[in-house]
Structure formats: structure tokens, C-alpha cells
């Protein structure tokens, strides 16, 4: 088949942010999958909650609030820094600010991981005691898996930012990583409510 040139693509930019970037769409796909995992785990919580007349079932006590509140406050604080970093990355002007922002996110992420370790003893139940314990630990485990995965991801990204030149596509990578961190923060809020508040009010 003969061809007829009707246009040229050379003038198009060779990188893109957000909706315009393919990577962003892939990330969205995986966040949809993981969101579905969270929704179904929360659905399992609702189902098991409906089967148990008291919640938590005796002799389990309600979880202690303090570590969960500390983690939640740290998450919200990190999100402020995270959004600032995303804005810096999108501007593509200040490599120093981007490196600084990623470093700050690493420190905050590590603080959250450490604070998370204090949450588990305060759940006042174990995964193998009863279905309540199982489903509470499930929610905490799923979220911690995301927290640690994204933190390691940020470590690797940070290492490359310090050892390699930053090109426009790396600004886009940082921007996407910020999007994933927002997902980790937002997904925590319903889990925090279900684990800590629901047993007190429902």
C-alpha cells in the first residue's frame, strides 16, 4: 500500500506529565487494582462485623488511639510536603528543590514506618485469635505493604536523583511518585476510621 504524508510529529514534546504521560495511566491502573483490594478488604470487614454481635468480640479490647493518631498526623503532614514536591517537579525548574523534597519525603516516610511499628501492639488483638483480629490485621498489613513499597520506591528514586542528571522525564517520575504517595495517604484514612474509630462508635 502506498503512503501519503499528511503531517509530522517531530515538533511534539518528548515527555509529558499526568494525564498526558503513559506511565501515569499505568500507575492509575495499578492504583485502581489496589483500591479494589482495599475496598474488598473493607467489605470483608463489614461482612465479618455483621456476623459478630460485639465488636471487638471479648476478650479483645478496642485499639489504643495514640499511635494511630500520630501516624495519621504524620501522613497528613507528609501530604503537604508531597504536594509541594509535586508542584516543584511539574515546574521542571529547580533540581535542587526536587532533590530536597524527595529527601524530606524519605525522612517523613521513615518516621511513619517507625510509628506504624508502634501501632500493631496497640491493636490489642492478634491475627490468629478470632476473625476480628484477622480482618483488622489484614487491613493494617495491606496498608503497611503499600507504605513500605512506596518508601522503598522513593529510596531508589532518591538515589538516582542524586547520582544521575535530572532530565524532564525524571521530573515526571517524581510527579508520578507523588501521586502514588497521595494514594497511600488517602487509602489510610478509611482504614484508620475502621480500625480505630468504628469499634468505638459502631
Amino acid at each position: 500500500m502506498r503512503t501519503n504524508v499528511v503531517g509530522d510529529l517531530y515538533a511534539l514534546p518528548d515527555h509529558a506529565f499526568g494525564l498526558k504521560s503513559i506511565i501515569w495511566w499505568g500507575l492509575m491502573g495499578f492504583m485502581m487494582i489496589e483500591s479494589m483490594g482495599f475496598v474488598l478488604a473493607l467489605g470483608a470487614w463489614v461482612y465479618i462485623r455483621g456476623l459478630n454481635p460485639s465488636w471487638p468480640p471479648p476478650p479483645d479490647a478496642v485499639p489504643g488511639l495514640i499511635p494511630g493518631i500520630v501516624v495519621t498526623v504524620l501522613f497528613l503532614l507528609s501530604e503537604v510536603v508531597n504536594r509541594w514536591l509535586a508542584a516543584q517537579a511539574k515546574k521542571k525548574e529547580d533540581d535542587h528543590a526536587v532533590r530536597l523534597g524527595v529527601t524530606a519525603m524519605l525522612v517523613l516516610g521513615l518516621a511513619i514506618v517507625v510509628a506504624r511499628m508502634f501501632e500493631f501492639p496497640q491493636l490489642h488483638t492478634r491475627w490468629d485469635v478470632n476473625a476480628y483480629g484477622s480482618v483488622v490485621w489484614l487491613l493494617m498489613f495491606l496498608h503497611t505493604l503499600h507504605l513500605i513499597t512506596d518508601w522503598i520506591d522513593t529510596v531508589v528514586l532518591g538515589a538516582w536523583l542524586y547520582t544521575h542528571e535530572i532530565e524532564p522525564s525524571q521530573h515526571s517520575e517524581v510527579y508520578d511518585n507523588c501521586g502514588y504517595w497521595t494514594f497511600v495517604v488517602v487509602s489510610w484514612l478509611p482504614i484508620w476510621f475502621v480500625v480505630y474509630i468504628a469499634p468505638r462508635v459502631m
Partner: peptide
């Protein structure tokens, strides 16, 4: 596919962007 081209024409999809027709 044959590599022959029958000449350039402006892009039908990107009227706002300056496309650079190329005759190969």
C-alpha cells in the same frame, strides 16, 4: 509496504500546532 510517499499535506488533526511536513 512500499516506501513510496505521495507528497506532504498539512495535518488534519492538529490545526493549532505547527506541523512540519516532510518529503521523504
Amino acid at each position: 509496504p512500499p516506501k513510496k510517499t505521495t507528497g506532504p499535506a498539512p495535518s488534519p488533526r492538529r490545526p493549532k500546532k505547527e506541523a512540519t511536513p516532510v518529503v521523504a
